[in-house]
Design a protein around this nucleic acid. Structure first.
Lengths: 234, 234
DNA sequence: ACCTGAACACCGTTCAAGT
DNA sequence: ACCTGAACACCGTTCAAGT
């Protein structure tokens, strides 16, 4: 996706190309692809190794254990968030980062939970928040206030994305890419995920919950925060 | 194993008391306790069964599989959130629910991620949000607006809690219960969770990030939302 | 010194054999 | 009809035996 090598031959991105030397980056890249395609629980040291055309134990020379490998994937995900150019003011900056974090959930729905599940602080996350803090301070925010704002923004954006994923994610990841589901499809999909004894009243509530335009709703909460911030002053 | 019915013995709340009949509730209860004590990945069908003094396969007559069991635990967690009395106005209501969701993260730090990781819609969550919607509508919110507010609030509260857990959670769960860590303890704990090559500049950023008073910071973001809501009108 | 794959100690779940 | 536990197909990781 991001990496364009301009090779003479069309990359088939299959087991054939897996004959390059084994690097940390390549492992992580294939690992993320595996999660995207088959889900987080399908990422197995053995499966990943065979995908790379390599002995399972070979992975352990690049990562201490599976946890460390997942930490690496999480760091990659954080690394996909980039700041807009220097000319954007603080409000647009916050809006941009929040939107990017939300969009990341659609780019990597099965991997997204790694953003918060890890037991380390991803370096990319620290660098991102530090760069944001610097920009906010330049526009007059106090240091601590800047930190609070960033933390609140991250919490909302990621939290919203995870709520959406946990209530809307189809079992098959195909829908995410294509056009929105029909009402019928949405309802049947919903019914599958409710206990059989759910009262009709609650089914209706659930349907309402999952029917809102997700993007609009995300913006609503984001606007709440930004409005509050402007009311309070920086 | 033979069934022993020693009714005269005082409850020691250990494996002895595990001789009660196996019910869905008891399984879930012990399962949550196991997660609280040993972490989510330590919850094993086999371990849980032995904790209950039961054959592993016995669990499968109450739950289709491990996923269904975890769904049940998630539902229990949602069930711990209760609404305040009818006399509280909408702002206090929202504040109360958000705070409860946040507090739940401290009561069950190792299980908290289940709130959002499940592939079903927990019934308790639907009932909670539906009850909230009703209350908000009674106070003049439009139906859709009420839904948006609830969703935004859930997102922020849970998101904040998960951000806090993922950046602050000590490896040993003891600290959560006791008094706050000292600065030194916090710093060393932080250093353990950063890559060895982290530049000093970023270490400082990370330290700042994890040092804020968590509770105060949570309230800051919550206030942002509520202020925004009041500015915009209901 | 590096690389490998057999082996260990688990896991969720199936299934056949017991009652 | 219910209950049980052996067995299957995995898993992450150790470790000794190869090079």
């Amino acid at each position: 996706m991001t990496e364009r090598r301009e090779a003479r031959e069309p990359d088939r991105e299959s087991e054939e190309t897996a004959r390059q030397p084994l690097t940390r980056e390549r492992i992580l890249h294939v690992g993320l692809r595996l999660i995207d395609q088959q889900g987080l629980e399908a990422l197995t040291m053995r499966k990943l190794a065979s995908e790379l055309g390599v002995d399972p134990m070979a992975l352990y020379r690049h990562f201490k254990n599976k946890e460390a490998l997942l930490d690496g994937v999480a760091d990659m995900l954080w690394g996909e968030i980039v700041l807009p150019g220097r000319e954007t003011d603080w409000e647009a900056l916050l809006r941009s980062v929040a939107t990017s974090l939300y969009a990341l959930a659609h780019a990597h729905p099965r991997a997204y939970t790694l953003l918060l599940n890890r037991q380390i602080l991803p370096l990319s996350m620290l660098q991102l928040s530090d760069a944001m803090r610097e920009r906010l301070q330049q526009e007059g925010f106090e240091r601590q206030r800047a930190g609070e704002v960033i933390c609140a923004l991250f919490s909302y954006a990621i939290g919203y994305a995870m709520v959406e994923l946990s209530t809307l994610l189809p079992q098959s990841p195909t829908h995410t890419e294509t056009e929105p589901m029909t009402d019928i499809a949405r309802l049947t999909h919903l019914m599958q995920r409710l206990p059989r004894e759910t009262p009709a009243h609650t089914v209706e509530a659930a349907y309402a919950l999952t029917t809102y335009e997700a993007e609009t709703q995300f913006t609503f909460g984001l606007d709440l925060m930004l409005t509050g911030l402007k009311c309070k002053g920086r």
